[in-house]
Amino acid sequence: MKSLVCVSKTPDTTTKIAFTDDGKAFNTQGVQYIMNPYDEWYALVRALELKEARGGTVTLINVGPAENDTIIRKGLAIGADEAVRVDAEPKSAFFVARQIAHYAREQDYDLVFLGKETIDYNGSEVGAMVAEMLGVPFLSYASHMEMEGDTAVVSRDIEGGTETVEVKPPFVISAAKGLAEQRIPNMRGIMMAKRKPLNVIEPVEAEDPAVAVHYELPPEKGDVKLIDPENMDELVRLLHEEAKVI
């Protein structure tokens, strides 16, 4: 299998989210970054497992500036064979998808993996866009995937259950929890990653017709009200009249 795994950089899960004063951008000051966990733990590892079982290659692709190389090296340390970085700010999902599709089209991949979403903007858009641009099927929210001969059997998380789909490569698949298990790179992998190719390529033109105009934080949580466990009527009244949830 020849797999392409799309990896993105996201703020560490412990980051305190803030926006710039004009509300037009995420405030990156003091933020530490990690590889998007859905890309790392599930998409990349499943691609590696398929390679280990059936042979082939695993290539990483990232759209971003040079400081993303640390995250890309981590993917190589976990086991990917090579990496490509499109040297551009990832301005929008459309822009990123255009870069990935442009690269993938030339390389003839069997499978394109990515996480079901990035944990910062939660767009879940790139996978669908890449599939559309490449003209191949898109399997989203995959929590299980096996190859049986030349056919993939993919289980998708759907509301209240699971949908199982059969599909032949090439296709794009977005990884949910369960698709694989996190692998922590060891020191040998980290040292080997230093010698693996990381090619930097120039972006192609892509103007996103949609533009984000404003960001704001959710309202702060209100005070906690403690209700005596004996006073169920008061609890019901508050949930009904104040919280308006029942």
Binding site: D69, R73, A77, Q182, I184, P185, N186, I190, M191, A193
Partner: peptide, 17 residues
Amino acid sequence: ESDHLLARESVRAWVKR
């Protein structure tokens, strides 16, 4: 260097797990 940072991140993740 990036391999120092990766080594730290890996061992920290291993310790947490």
